[in-house]
């Protein structure tokens, strides 16, 4: 479903701030794979996701989604194939627009936007049913401005928007990091429900090692712009946080120095 071949990305090349964020990374996701990505700060996790999303172009290598080479497609053109949820709950939705209007925008992802009605009456019934899945009472607030919602509600809505058009690939960039633990758990639960419902191929970055182990069928760990660890199937099911820390030391030869990841285990 996703095929990343030897991609590299260096920020600020030729300056003091030169940073090689991705170093010859290759990764292939099978149809229906749910891959969790962990790694310390600056490991290249978000860079990998942004490379796929097309926030900027990679320096080298190629990216294909469902057999379509998207390496040179601009961000909005790639959006046709991708569902995205961001770390910041403010990023995924339009605050001054209503819940139904946001969903209607997502419904038209990958479609030429014409002078047809921005939202049809029959769509409202559909959104009402969809929002029930979230179990947040949003189905009765279709016209409420999204800016009035809490961070958790906005992330849940963004998830719904991202999965509305059945993306070839769902990209989740630490989408629970800004939420309190209880809300984060709820949003992850919704994530699981939606991914299973549509059998979505998913790439999920998380800082939480336990979540990384608990969710998905495959786990990759990144460091210094490389994938240093890739585990799937039965082996992943039996993984523990201690295993993960041990592996990290083994591969990298240093302590896993990310308090946030350790503290949240």
């Amino acid at each position: 479903m996703l095929e990343i071949k030897n991609i590299s990305k260096t920020f600020n090349p030729g300056t003091l701030n030169e940073k090689c964020a991705l170093n010859n990374v290759s990764l292939t996701l099978e149809d229906g794979d749910f891959v969790t990505v962990i790694g310390g700060n600056g490991a290249g996790k978000s860079t990998l996701l942004n490379a796929v999303a097309g926030t900027w172009y990679v320096d080298e290598g190629s990216i294909s989604v469902d057999g379509i080479n998207v390496t040179k497609l601009s961000e909005h053109k790639r959006a046709k194939y991708l569902g995205r949820v961001f770390q910041d709950p403010m990023t995924g939705t339009a605050a001054t627009m209503g819940i139904e209007e946001n969903l209607a925008l997502a419904k038209r992802r990958g479609k030429l936007r014409t002078l047809a009605r921005g939202i049809h009456h029959k769509e409202r019934a559909e959104y009402h049913e969809l929002l029930k899945i979230l179990d947040l009472g949003l189905e009765n607030r279709l016209t409420s401005k999204v800016g009035l919602l809490s961070g958790g509600q906005r992330q849940a809505l963004t998830l719904l928007m991202a999965s509305l058009k059945k993306p070839k690939l769902l990209l989740l960039d630490e989408h629970t990091a800004a939420l309190d633990p209880k809300t984060a758990a709820k949003v992850l639960e919704i994530t699981q429900t939606l991914v299973e419902r549509d059998n979505l191929t998913t790439l999920m970055i998380t800082h939480n090692m336990r979540d990384a182990i608990h969710y998905g069928n495959r786990l990759i760990m990144m460091m210094n712009g490389n994938i240093i660890f890739d585990i799937k199937g039965e082996e992943k099911k039996n993984l523990t946080v201690e295993d993960l820390l041990h592996k990290f030391q083994l591969v990298s030869g240093e302590q896993f120095a990310d308090d946030k990841a350790l503290l949240s285990k």
Partner: peptide, 15 residues
């Protein structure tokens, strides 16, 4: 309207 409100979200939705 979405572009003015949130360009990142707009691009993610294919605008």
């Amino acid at each position: 309207r979405a572009t003015g409100c949130n360009p990142n979200m707009s691009r993610a939705q294919g605008i």
